[in-house]
């Protein structure tokens, strides 16, 4: 292995008083990988991201960031950037001043720190000299990302980066993240939107009440053997329902909705064709990822 993992966590636990926020968490993020962290509210996503940023130290377990073991709070190695709970911006400063103040704080000359490039990458060049007090949530998110870009991070930690983004903003953010990952930066981002995770992430970790309920490639998650609900629209709903009720491995949930594994579904389609019933639509009611997510997180409650 020539380069260390961006994140290597083993058995991380963290509690606040009597509340266990994280319970035996394992997490691996390779350089160049965009890793999604999903889970319902209160699952511990923000706490875990805070540990990665070095805001706090875990109560137990081992955490290595960019190959460096983390033992104390704020002990993060150089090259970690990002934000939790929304980007930190000062509303009385303009977008450019916010970035310049941050660059100066890190000991870099504000003129040569690449502020214009960072603003351009997130599509905020036009509002660079506006006070951030008037920025929308989406603009703030993008400026927070620009602030992280200034440090040329090797591990980027983002909490709900697509909150409040319009389609253009989303495209800017996706482009920036993909380019960073292509350059070898490991990225961990939390989201509650599975479509976001599907487009961006190669791997995903699902947290529920402080535990990892799934971790691995997205393809593995979707392919997990699980009955799904499908919407089935046909030319003759009444007869189709009779056929479906007789077919093996098929449960009729309601009119035009059946629950089945993929092989049983294949057989149902053939049976319907045989009876001369035309199929007009056959789609999962929720995306396979979302279904998996719901099944996993609800199961753990």
């Amino acid at each position: 292995m020539d380069r260390p993992l961006a994140v290597r966590a083993r058995g991380i636990t963290k509690s606040f008083g009597e509340v266990i926020a994280l319970d035996e968490i394992d997490l691996d993020v390779a350089p160049g990988q965009i890793h999604g962290l999903v889970g319902p509210n209160g699952a511990g996503k923000t706490t875990l991201l805070g540990l990665l940023l070095g805001l706090a130290v875990a109560d137990g377990g081992k955490l290595e960031i960019l190959g460096t073991p983390i033992r104390r709070a704020l002990d993060a190695p150089d090259g970690v950037a990002g934000f939790v709970d929304g980007p930190g911006l000062y509303p009385s400063l303009t977008a450019r001043q916010n970035l310049a103040a941050l660059a100066t704080l890190r000991g870099r000359d504000a003129r040569s720190a690449g502020i214009d490039e960072a603003l351009d990458q997130v599509g905020l060049t036009d509002v660079a000299d506006d006070r951030t007090g008037g920025f929308s949530l989406g603009m703030r998110q993008r400026l927070g990302l620009a602030a992280a870009l200034l440090t040329e991070p090797r591990l980027l930690v983002l909490d709900e980066p697509s909150n409040g983004l319009d389609p253009i903003g989303t495209r800017h953010v996706h482009r920036v993240l993909t380019a960073l990952a292509a350059g070898g930066t490991g990225i961990v981002l939390s989201s509650h939107r599975m479509d976001d995770v599907e487009t961006l992430c190669s791997e995903v970790t699902i947290l529920a009440t402080g535990r990892v309920v799934f971790s691995g490639p997205l393809s593995k998650l979707a392919a997990e053997n699980r009955e799904l609900d499908y919407r089935l629209r046909t030319s003759d709903p009444a007869r189709a329902r009779t056929v479906a009720e007789k077919a093996p491995g098929i449960t009729v949930v309601e009119d035009e909705v059946v629950r089945a594994l993929v092989p049983a579904l294949d057989e149902l389609v053939t049976a319907l064709m045989r009876d001369g019933i035309a199929i007009r639509e056959l789609t999962p009611v929720v995306s396979p990822l979302e279904a998996a997510f719901l099944a996993l997180t609800e199961g753990s409650k």
């Binding site: 950037a81 934000f83 709970d85 930190g88 911006l89 941050l102």
Partner: peptide, 14 residues
Amino acid sequence: LGTWRHLLVAVRSP
């Protein structure tokens, strides 16, 4: 402003 964490990550010393 909710900027404590940002500031801590930037300065790294309370």
